[in-house]
């Protein structure tokens, strides 16, 4: 499904990723761990083509991600720390926009139903600038549920969630694993990594080691 080969990225000549390679087959879930600043987020953003990298090749569904057409990334979804949405727009408008950008027909009732499911039904029409960190995290979950993706790059799903937020996230993740979806997550605590990850990779000093 995804094969990342010898990615290297440096900021002001300090190399953050020296030579990162790993492969991820369909239906598998990979958890990437590492200290802060090890380059986990950089790696995910490079795969999502948000960030450029100096060297390296990435094949997604064995098509070259760097030189290929943009439409290759239709089934690749990246969810980062920030919700990547417009503060001025409301939750519904943001989701409609995000889905249209991915060539998905977005009907309002389906969106509203997902928002209700994740406990955001009441604030659906308020601009997301007033959302709390936990609500933003649920908005991301709703977004992930609505888009049909084959590979999800999820950056630290559990930050800023209260009790039932964590429960919601657990339910969603286990359900996706049951459905056989492939995911690549960045996590921090070990037993969650063991619970979800078929393969756990440890990123330190710019190189990827499997634990």
């Amino acid at each position: 499904m995804l094969s990342v080969s010898n990615i290297s990225k440096s900021f002001n000549y300090r190399s953050v990723l020296k030579d990162v390679s790993f492969t991820l087959n369909a239906g598998e879930t990979v958890v990437i761990m590492g200290k802060n600043g090890a380059g986990k987020t950089t790696l995910l953003r490079i795969i999502a083509r948000i960030m450029a990298c100096e060297k390296g090749k990435i094949l997604f569904q064995n098509q070259n991600l760097f030189d290929g057409e943009p439409s290759i990334r239709k089934k690749l979804l990246y969810i980062g720390h920030a919700p990547a949405m417009y503060t001025a727009l409301s939750a519904i408008e943001n989701l409609t926009l995000a889905l249209n950008l991915r060539y998905i027909k977005a009907n309002a009732s389906k969106i509203l139903d997902r928002l209700n499911h994740f406990g955001l039904g009441m604030q659906a029409n308020d601009p997301i600038s007033i959302y709390s960190q936990g609500m933003l995290q649920r908005l991301k979950l709703a977004y992930a549920e609505l888009t049909d993706w084959d590979l999800l790059l999820f950056d630290e799903p559990f930050t800023g969630l209260d009790q039932d937020g964590v429960a919601l996230m657990d339910k969603a993740l286990t359900q996706w694993i049951k459905e056989g979806k492939t995911m690549c997550m960045v996590l921090h605590n070990m037993e969650r990594a063991k619970q979800y990850g078929d393969q756990i990779l440890y990123l330190n000093h710019g190189v990827m080691e499997s634990l």
């Binding site: 990225k9 900021f11 002001n12 000549y13 450029a52 100096e54």
Partner: peptide, 8 residues
Amino acid sequence: GHAERVKR
């Protein structure tokens, strides 16, 4: 910004 981006 950082050197790599400035190159582009």
